[in-house]
Design a protein around this nucleic acid. Structure first.
Lengths: 260, 260
DNA sequence: CAATCAAATAACCAGGTGGTTACTTAGCCG
DNA sequence: CGGCTAAGTAACCACCTGGTTATTTGATTG
């Protein structure tokens, strides 16, 4: 009896043919004898195919539920190659995780929040974070899986911490600027704030299936998702408004505009 | 080679001896022949032992990573009994989930928020939610696992939805009271708000291992946890403050609540 | 053009998987 | 007390698991 696995909706197009259409075009591929081995060797493409397949498999089934056999099949490669390139299941998972983190932090940096007006910068960061999770559900799932294992893999990573300090620095500077001009309350911890920004979206998406079920309401509809994005912005900016009794208003630009 | 499993810290005391101390006391247990079968039959205790063991196993390893052999071992019962009482792995998981939900909703109801002043009631709900997750990490883990499977088990549950409507009703009434007396902004959707309250704590705890790693900061210390609790209260109550320019203050109680 | 080494393959391994078959035994009820 | 059912046990099953062994083959390089 096959082990239960989470549902896979589309016949997932992640399994790449080992050869591109271009390359195969110049030869008689179909009619001839059975091509036992791939005609061309391409370590880079093989590596990429394994990583993509692994990301899909791990995020779909969790670490424990994922099967290296299935990864190899998805990638269209021999299982032995997976061990050749990545050593074992755990090391493969770590590489997938590291890539996922690098991707989001790079996209974040591209926002160039330092050049924007604080409220606008914050709004963009919040919406970016929400939309990133929305567009990359595999990222959400991978993090959940890794936390089930108490970050055992990630903790072995070398450069993970350096990857994240720029984010904290940016946020810190943003909060300082906002507080200086009186549009943000002061004394906000950037790490706590980031966890709030992330959590308001992450939890919604990560738990959308149970939440939809218990509240009897489709939380994945286009409208519901758009509403949630707005909601998160409102919560964060609403929280960041300075308290009614102004702590220390800056003499010049200190108009407490609660725009939006 | 044994399959990788998430770490288990203490030699988990969840495995109950099949017989209570009282019962065993009245007999010569130790010296005699090898007691092949339990001297007493107790379906209720067996059922309970299986459920407790299953909750521990599922939350520690996820659904896919959990092993029914391990559940039986933890519970100190023969695996066949597990199938006798619960049918199969999936049905067992569903019962565990239903129990977990019933527990939190019952505890919530016991708060009697209807009798409290709105701001105080909200503060208590927020802190209760945070502390519940904190004290029952297995609940957090179970929900994550169930969402990996797109709530396939929970969706088959009959009475799950009825279990949650009182929560929404309570929150709705709370928001109406608060808006009526001008301490909360109006037009807040109770479901969105609850997801925010839950998410601010759930995400922190669910992802505490990766977050601690990437930010290089122990987010599980007593102090950090206390700070987070305060933070969540601040974010929610900060958000709920009415906007600076009062929208339309109701002279009496006739607040045009745009509920939903 | 032979040597070399990485890329790739197929077949295999011990042990774990969810689930079952065949059986024994305790306790209740007529 | 006899019989029946539910509680309980041990051994087993086919299949899947992560990982390996032994081998072939493509491409580069001296």
């Amino acid at each position: 009896m096959p082990p239960l696995r989470p549902p896979v909706e589309p016949p997932n197009a992640t399994r790449l043919p080992h050869r591109s259409a271009e390359e195969a075009a110049g030869e008689q591929t179909g009619a001839g004898g059975p091509p036992r081995t791939a005609a061309t060797r391409d370590p880079e493409r093989t590596r990429r195919a394994i990583l993509d397949a692994a990301a899909a498999e791990f995020s779909a089934n969790g670490f424990g539920g994922a099967s290296v056999n299935a990864v190899a099949e998805r990638a269209g490669i021999n299982k032995r190659m997976l061990y050749h390139y990545f050593g074992n299941k755990e090391d493969l998972f770590l590489v997938v995780l590291e890539e996922a983190y690098a991707d989001i932090r790079n996209a974040e940096r591209a926002l160039s929040l330092g050049n924007l007006e604080p409220v606008e910068a914050m709004r963009r960061l919040v919406l970016f974070t929400w939309r990133y999770y929305l567009e990359k559900p595999s990222f959400v799932s991978l993090l959940n899986t890794e936390n089930l294992y108490k970050a055992a893999h990630l903790r072995r990573s070398q450069n993970i911490r350096a990857l994240h300090s720029p984010l904290v620095d940016t946020l810190e500077e943003l909060l300082r600027r906002g507080a200086g001009q009186g549009t943000f309350r002061s004394g906000v911890d950037p790490v706590q704030l980031y966890i709030s920004i992330a959590g308001l979206g992450f939890f919604y998406l990560s738990n959308v299936h149970t939440l939809s079920t218990i509240f009897g309401r489709d939380l994945q509809s286009k409208q519901a998702l758009a509403e949630r994005g707005e909601q998160i912005v409102e919560v964060i900016l609403g929280y960041l408004r300075p308290p009614a009794a102004p702590q220390q208003a800056a003499p010049d630009t200190a108009v407490p505009d609660t725009k939006d």
